[in-house]
């Protein structure tokens, strides 16, 4: 099966053009839309349905920075970064714990403005981390293989930030009822 980048006709890069990706998604889904195969054979209809699933799965990977980075790492180095592992970097984890504590306090106080400001702070950390991961992917050239361990560690960090953002959203929704 084609990897998600190939399926979408994209160069395997970490940074991608989001409007271009959405446009490609629409075109590709249209091409396999069930209506086009309404008079086709069962086999053609099934193939169109399977293709739709493949396209949607690949899109899900490409639009998520974490999953896109994992897919690219797998493609370039063969390393699977999707397993359940334990991270033990004390400095980083202590920082993450403090962020969750801050979130807990804001959530308990039902401080909506505080939560919005906090979300902005984490989003900017997430942006920086995405740029950071991109730098590591860019280091590949004829003289340098990718440092898969280092990239994995940086993807893990992005995953914790993402989780904090999900928790912030949940806290906001709880306040709004």
């Amino acid at each position: 099966m084609k990897n998600p980048f190939e399926l979408f006709g994209l160069e395997p890069n970490f940074l991608l053009n989001e409007p271009e990706l959405s446009q490609k998604l629409r075109n590709m889904l249209q091409a396999v839309h069930p209506d086009r195969f309404a008079s086709g054979s069962d086999q053609e209809q099934l193939a169109a349905m399977q293709k739709t699933t493949q396209i949607n799965d690949a899109y899900g990977i490409l639009k998520s920075p974490v999953r896109r980075a994992q897919a690219l790492l797998q493609l370039k180095t063969g390393v699977d970064g999707t397993g359940e592992v334990t991270v033990k970097d004390p400095m980083f984890l202590m920082q993450q714990l403090e962020l969750r504590e801050e979130l807990e306090i804001l959530s308990d106080k039902k401080d909506m403005n505080g939560l919005l400001a906090f979300a902005e702070e984490i989003e900017s950390m997430e942006k920086k981390q995405i740029a950071n991961i991109n730098d590591f992917f860019q280091q590949e050239d004829e003289n340098h293989a990718l440092d898969s361990d280092k990239i994995l560690t940086e993807i893990y960090k992005l995953q914790f930030l993402r989780k904090t953002l999900i928790d912030i959203e949940a806290a906001e929704e709880k306040i709004l009822g």
Binding site: V85, V87, K88, P90, M94, Q96, R100, Y156
Partner: peptide, 15 residues
């Protein structure tokens, strides 16, 4: 003694 661990797949942090 302090142990800090985390699970990136689910984002859990444990001290």
């Amino acid at each position: 003694g302090t142990g800090m661990v985390g699970a990136p797949a689910c984002g859990d942090v444990m001290k």
